[in-house]
């Protein structure tokens, strides 16, 4: 890698402008306005084309349906920013769903205990993904592809011969309706955003994803940090799984299938770099809303799920193309 000076950049002696809080805000807004505009545009198109789409209920359902995947995608955002990749979160989702189901339906433990056990299981599986990578240096793609099938198998073994349904009522509250999942989604996004922007470990995710070698030479504990990012991905996959089990009032190992791909899609559509170093959860929320708006809007227009999938596929490619195109050439 060579860093040649870019001819367009200002010379050293010229003072660079800015520095006030307003400048900082402006700078942050510059990074997000394009995806916000895209979301507004897509919403407007369906608003014009479809009468029932215009209702407030539709808007609410877009948010509500996005909530569970958006929570999972917040974890994916952290992992991708750090230059990692976790294809196994859909399977972690399945394992946690089954574990929480067993704890509630068979052992009849209190709801908070079940939730804590579920979150701990998610953290453990995420940590395992990270640890294997750090110790073996096998690429993230392969380690988590292994996790994708292995965790799925664990979920199936755990669930076999069990009836995991009819949970206590105070558990069903978590995922019911749109408002509670939405509230949890915003809470998770806020916490993850604060983690990424305001804490040392969060900032190191950008540093490691941006240039791992510079981070290492600067004294960042790259290996330990990486394990933490995968743990966060696991915990948020678990959070999403708990909400879904609550919403459906049953648990089964087939849930969570392809969720990792939807999450990656939302993260990338939002503008977080697939190459690491840039991004944020605000962008991911917008990306998820873009995806959900298209799905809901198209179905209001009578377009079937197969065509919806094609549309989402094209948008993913366009989003990554945009990411590649705007990256400065090195």
């Amino acid at each position: 890698m060579t860093d040649l000076p870019r001819p367009s950049a200002p010379p050293v002696s010229a003072p660079t402008p800015g520095g006030s809080n307003l400048d900082v805000l402006k700078h942050q807004f510059q990074q997000i306005w394009q995806v916000l505009a895209a979301l507004a545009l897509i919403y407007m198109v369906f608003f014009v084309l479809s009468e029932p789409f215009r209702s407030f209920d539709t808007l609410l359902s877009i948010f509500g349906q996005a909530a569970i995947l958006a929570i999972l995608a917040c974890g994916t955002t952290v992992v991708l920013i750090s230059g990692g990749l976790d294809l196994s979160v859909g399977s972690i989702f399945a394992v946690v769903g089954v574990i929480v189901g067993i704890v509630l339906a068979e052992y009849r433990l209190p709801v908070p205990v079940a939730v804590l056990i579920g979150l701990a299981a998610g953290a453990l599986m995420g940590a395992l993904n990270g640890t294997i990578q750090v110790l073996t240096k096998v690429p993230a793609f392969i380690v988590t592809l292994g996790g994708l099938t292995a965790y799925k198998g664990i979920a199936e073994i755990l669930a076999s011969g069990r009836d995991l349904s009819r949970f206590p009522e105070n558990f069903q509250v978590l995922g019911s309706g749109y408002l509670v999942p939405m509230g949890i989604m915003f809470g998770v996004a806020l916490l993850t955003g604060l983690f990424l922007t305001k804490t040392r470990l969060g900032n190191h995710a950008f540093a490691i994803g941006g240039n791992e070698e510079v981070a290492r030479l600067s004294g960042v504990n790259v290996r330990k940090s990486r394990i933490y990012y995968y743990m966060i991905g696991g915990v948020l996959a678990a959070t999403a799984a708990i909400l879904e089990v609550s919403k459906l009032n049953f648990a089964m190992p087939a849930r969570g299938q392809s969720y990792e791909l939807f999450a990656i899609a939302a993260v990338v559509i939002g503008g977080t770099s697939l190459f690491g170093g840039r991004g944020g959860v605000g962008k991911t929320l917008i990306g998820m809303l873009i995806m959900q708006t298209i799905i809901v809007g198209l179905s209001y227009l009578g377009v079937g799920t197969s065509v919806q999938r094609i549309a989402i596929g094209i948008i993913i490619i366009l989003a990554v193309y945009w990411d590649v195109w705007r990256r400065p050439a090195r």
Partner: peptide, 29 residues
């Protein structure tokens, strides 16, 4: 950082901006 930059006569004020936005000389500074 602002105090140090002033002392060293490094004229960069928008320190919230990403490093890639600056010239080779500014980055080395």
């Amino acid at each position: 950082i602002r105090a140090l930059f002033q002392k060293l006569d490094i004229r960069i004020t928008d320190i919230y901006r990403e490093a890639e936005a600056f010239s080779g000389g500014q980055r080395q500074a």
